[in-house]
């Protein structure tokens, strides 16, 4: 009924210590992970070929990045990296200092020390280590009992001394019994003392001054403020922030705007990049960052970025950079929603818009060429006798010719341009199947996935026909591990390196978006699958199509790396046997290149 | 807010209308105007005989021109026939009949356009046919052809592959696919 308060400061330090540990230990672990183990910003992949490609692209990127972009990137990277004096670090430092202070206080507190030493430790009493055997315990007891036996004591000892030694003897006997006698041992293990349950006191682990008449109104006030102001404030802030954003990371108002545009979209309208940019310009995220600007302003800024002009009335490049860098998540969100309403044309246009924004190139027929650095647009457009739209076509000419076509006179500049051109990954389809792990074919109502085998190649390299690659290079392991998780093969590929994108405000990595549509109605059937791991080592190979004329006996297919993409299907195979036709689209988000767009037959057989 | 003009007998909106409202008002006005000018008090969804005759005459003369290899005139007549069908028919006439008529005439118009080398217009009409649900190999063959001639090689291949999923053994589509592949190989160097 009557609770004791912690007058002697025996227990409240432990309480505060526990609270501190609850906060500090997870925080410390996560901070250590972030500082030392987080690999998401890595430029080392453990894959020397991939690092080689990375290095080449980084060098070229650095050469062509403008000063404005460089400054913006530095500021962005600085804020992303953890600062020494960030809030987290300060909390950690102060927290651990408090812990040290409390531990020191506990050690200096005699009352705590006394109650700790009051604990019954049979091993210490017998003078043996906790791992001693029964024989050691017996011999230790025998020695001590001889020393402390009341009958063996000298008659000269005073009453106090005698009492002390007798008490000692009792303790030693108890200790011996606690370790050997069954009943006493049970008592010791259950209650911590061989005599059974000791007195237990219950109290409140808080000093009494907190509840004394003087301090208690203050404590109540603190409680009131915490419960009625501080707690609701933080919970509301957290809740509205969580509620404001969809799973894909875009604002709910932006998402509902996109859904509205998608639902009211007329099939007679042709989807263009301009249309997508117009939809983007109404994003809520932009309004939050720049409340004073209108949708028309945002649209103009994005167009300025794509056309590499500066027509907007807002001349500060930071405004444009923030808007453009936000487009990444907005476009991914729109892509997801477009797949949700099954609109293939809009999904495709979203990906094309992505490329236009990343490369700052408008969606003209010449976009593959215009994404290259140093191109003299006027000379190129008026010059070509033979219509050149693709990098592949460009590389049918000798380097000097290419310089003339692109209007590049400087040899050093031409070399850089050709480096970029030959390091843009192109995909060549080798094989695509519907696979059901453990089955030789697709059976009715099974769950197949799509397995795509392709070659990553440079536009400069000679085309290798798919037949040149033996089945052994394309087949997959059939062991149990593979059947359990057929998608594990994707994890073995290294992450994509940073892209060549000197106009995009932040450093970014290429990704491949995979869309699947039904050929019967031409509509998409599932959300996009984004691939961010792919080996680009083939880009390092010297296989210039202007020099290699024929694929002779010296051609070794094993030297080439085959890329794999696995696309899970969102629905099972049809319940009846027959053929179903699917269109698979695999597009790069960052480059204008030869993407994959092909038809696959699902042969459903018993 | 909507206002009604007793002279023109038409509805219009006060202020800036939404797209949906604009379409709805347009449809109501079209229906009203057609109803007012209808002379037969017992009108039915059956197509008007005189309008049908007019359309048929125009269309037939267009076909005759085509047979005589006078394609510009053929195009003019067939286009006129389609215009008549769009303008002169009452909006309450049976949709199924109107659709079939339009699809039939469009197919002939497309063929004439292709002969005349007017590929972009042929493509638009082909897209229209596909939008009305006519997804058939014959339509996709012509669409592939038009896209190839317009230099849209990637799109041509995609349409050709779609055609082949409808009829995997179609010889013309197979030949077109080979042509797409060949042209794309050259396009990509």
């Amino acid at each position: 009924q009557s609770y004791e308060y912690d007058e002697g400061s025996e227990t409240w330090p432990f309480f505060v210590l526990t609270m501190l540990f609850v906060v500090l230990v997870p925080l410390s672990i996560s901070q250590i992970y972030r500082l030392f183990l987080d690999r998401s910003n890595a430029t080392e992949y453990g894959d020397p070929e991939q690092e080689k490609v990375q290095k080449i692209l980084e060098e070229v990127n650095d050469e062509f990045v403008t000063e404005d972009v460089r400054v913006f990137r530095q500021a962005y990277e600085k804020s992303a990296r953890s600062n020494i004096w960030s809030k987290r670090n300060i909390v950690l430092i102060v927290g651990w200092a408090l812990v040290a202070f409390l531990i020191q206080r506990i050690r200096e507190n005699d009352a705590i020390v006394a109650s700790a030493t009051g604990l019954f430790d049979p091993y210490a009493l017998l003078g043996v280590s906790p791992s001693a055997t029964d024989r050691d315990i017996k011999s230790a007891y025998r020695k001590l009992s001889v020393k402390f036996h009341p009958d063996k004591l000298s008659k000269d000892l005073g009453g106090e001394e005698r009492a002390r030694i007798e008490e000692m003897y009792v303790q030693i006997s108890k200790a011996y019994e606690a370790l050997t006698d069954e009943i006493t041992k049970a008592n010791y293990l259950t209650y911590g003392h061989p005599d059974g349950p000791q007195t237990v006191s219950h109290g409140i682990a808080l000093p009494s001054f907190l509840v004394d008449r003087v301090a208690s109104p203050v404590v109540i006030l603190i409680y009131a403020v915490m419960l009625s102001i501080v707690l609701p404030y933080f919970v509301t802030k957290w809740w509205s922030r969580t509620n404001s954003f969809t799973k894909k990371g875009i604002h709910v108002k932006t998402a509902s705007h996109f859904v509205d545009r998608l639902a009211n979209f007329k099939p007679s309208e042709i989807v263009t990049v301009d249309l997508i940019v117009n939809w983007l310009s109404n994003a809520e995220e932009f309004k939050i960052i720049f409340p004073n600007l209108t949708a028309a302003d945002f649209e103009e800024l994005i167009h300025d970025h794509i056309d590499r002009t500066n027509n907007s009335r807002l001349k500060d490049p930071k405004v444009r950079f923030r808007i453009v860098s936000k487009c990444h998540s907005l476009l991914h969100g729109l892509l997801d929603l477009a797949c949700g309403v099954r609109n293939t044309e809009i999904a495709n246009a979203t990906l094309e818009t992505f490329k236009c924004i990343v490369q700052a190139v408008p969606h003209t027929p010449y976009r593959q060429i215009l994404q290259l650095p140093n191109v003299n647009k006027e000379k190129f457009l008026e010059g070509s006798v033979d219509e050149i739209y693709t990098l592949g076509k460009l590389f049918t000419y000798e380097d000097k010719e290419i310089g003339k076509i692109l209007g590049i006179d400087d040899e050093h500049k031409l070399k850089k341009t050709l480096t970029v051109a030959s390091h843009i990954p192109h995909l060549k389809l080798i094989k695509a199947d519907f696979l059901v792990p453990g089955e030789p074919q697709v059976t009715p109502s099974s769950t197949p996935h799509i397995s795509v085998k392709f070659l990553v190649r440079s536009a400069k390299q000679k085309i290798i026909p798919p037949e040149k690659f033996p089945e052994s290079m394309l087949e997959e392991p059939q062991d149990f591990e593979f059947q359990k998780d057929p998608f594990s093969i994707l994890e073995s590929q290294p992450p994509m390196p940073y892209s060549y994108a000197p106009f995009f405000p932040t450093k970014r990595r290429n990704a491949l978006c995979c869309l699947v549509a039904l050929q019967k109605d031409g509509k998409l059937i599932q959300t996009p699958v984004v691939i961010d791991k792919l080996s680009l080592q083939n880009l390092n190979k010297d296989f210039d199509k202007r020099q290699v004329k024929d694929l002779d006996e010296n051609f070794k297919p094993e030297e080439w790396s085959i890329g794999t993409i696995k696309i899970p299907l969102g629905q099972p195979a049809p319940a009846e046997t027959g053929d179903a036709f699917f269109r698979v689209i695999i597009k790069s988000t960052d480059y204008f290149t030869s993407d994959l767009d092909f038809t696959m037959t699902m042969q459903v057989r018993e | 807010e909507i206002s009604y003009d007793t002279n023109s007998k038409k509805l219009s909106s006060v202020g800036e209308p939404t797209e949906g409202l604009e379409i709805a008002l347009g449809q109501v006005n079209t229906l009203t105007t057609a109803l007012i000018s209808e002379t037969n008090p017992n009108f039915t969804p059956q197509p008007h005989e005189d309008v049908s005759k007019l359309i048929k005459n125009l269309f037939d003369s267009g076909l005759k021109n085509a047979q005589q290899n006078k394609f510009p005139e053929a195009l003019k007549n067939v286009s006129l026939a389609i215009e008549m069908a769009q303008r002169k028919r009452a909006p309450w006439e049976a949709f199924a009949i109107q659709l079939k008529e339009l699809q039939f005439m469009l197919r002939h118009k497309i063929d004439i356009l292709l002969v005349l080398g007017r590929y972009l217009e042929a493509l638009q009409d082909l897209d229209m046919l596909m939008n009305t649900g006519l997804i058939q190999p014959e339509v996709l063959i012509r669409k592939t052809d038009a896209l190839l001639k317009l230099g849209q090689l990637d799109q041509a291949r995609i349409e050709c592959e779609r055609g082949l999923t409808l009829q995997p053994q179609n010889a013309k589509l197979k030949a077109l696919l080979m042509e797409c592949t060949r042209k794309l190989a050259d396009f990509n160097g």
Binding site: E269 | Q86, R89, P91, Q98, L120, Q124, D125, M128
Partner: peptide, 22 residues
């Protein structure tokens, strides 16, 4: 019928977009 007419009338605009794109 009206939807059909609207779709037919959008052909001109579509042509213009194609010309601009290609």
């Amino acid at each position: 019928n009206q939807a059909l007419t609207r779709r037919y009338n959008s052909i001109f605009k579509r042509k213009e977009v194609c010309i601009k794109e290609w």
